[in-house]
Write a protein that binds this DNA or RNA. Structure first.
Lengths: 162, 162
DNA sequence: GCAAACTTGTTTCAAATGATACTATGAGCG
DNA sequence: CGCTCATAGTATCATTTGAAACAAGTTTGC
């Protein structure tokens, strides 16, 4: 059952789930995301999408939801819901877009900015704990490789659907 | 707004979402998983959990659901549902466990095994397309780093909850 | 100008997810 | 034995997700 007479080699060598990159990637990401998400939820009652919106608003100032979608690689529905939650908690404010009536500009409130200032060090501490024991150049390479995988996946998805 | 007078340095340097490993990991994984999941779904009407169950049964022969849970890092509910779907399609069979009446042993049918044989090359082709352009030693390092991140996340999660 | 086509953001709906509770069986111990 | 406790797997429920339809506003082409 593990030996394929036609190909003349062990079938088990052909495909091993443990060695399959998409599987490894998904499992590692789930473990890390789960850890982080639980932490944000428990301590600050924030979802990951909400935290991402806060981050890009802290970095780039006022943005429309469309710009946030582009910056965070999230669905527009996800961003819309995250923004509504943050609005209710007065962590962000909305203002009219000067040139486009469909759009609004989101920006952090004082409170939102202060929350960001509070969480950011904890987030960095989590990252530091995760990569403790890894060589810095390995971490840098890891980030580059992840970006290239993301780009490759995007390209392959585009190739198929278009 | 990007300059914090109190700390005397640019705020943007403190936390950049783009450089945050959990974010990069999640985004890359979502891009890759989405691509793969769509492909399994479109061509074979299989979910990712179902595909994972097929893989470990192809590798290891008859397993209980508990063993599959351990092998695939999935929730037991997820495995239960995946198994039920595969049973309905006669891709796996269930037999009594010789020593434990609560448990069943799952194994691939001829049809399930043949489906695995059909999908595996495609899965490998996807992986090859994703890592095209990357140095093989970089890919090997990537897999090792992912495994270590997963372990670190598991450990951190354990530290908190226990 | 103004109708058709497109964009922005929201709502709606169906599917996936996972925590919790439950059933059925097995294990430990007096 | 017989009672409690642990485990395998399933069912239930609330939440999350994203695709598709939608409303409101903008752009384009004639």
């Amino acid at each position: 059952m593990k030996y394929d007479a036609a190909s003349g080699r062990a079938k088990g060598d052909e495909f091993r789930l443990d060695a399959y990159l998409p599987y490894r990637l998904s499992v590692a990401s789930n473990a890390v995301s789960g850890l982080i998400a639980r932490s944000y939820q428990d301590r600050f009652a924030l979802s990951v999408p909400q935290w991402r919106v806060i981050c890009v608003l802290a970095e780039d100032g006022g943005l429309t939801q469309g710009q946030i979608v582009a910056r965070t690689v999230m669905d527009k529905v996800t961003v819309s819901r995250a923004a509504q939650g943050l609005l209710k908690r007065h962590l962000v404010v909305r203002s009219e877009h000067h040139a486009d009536g469909r759009s609004h500009v989101l920006a952090l409130t004082e409170e939102g900015s202060s929350l960001h200032g509070e969480i950011a060090p904890l987030a960095l501490a989590y990252e530091a704990a995760l990569i403790a024991g890894l060589a810095p150049q390995d971490v840098a390479l890891l980030k580059r490789l992840l970006t290239r995988l993301q780009a490759a996946a995007g390209q392959l998805a585009g190739d198929v659907s278009i």
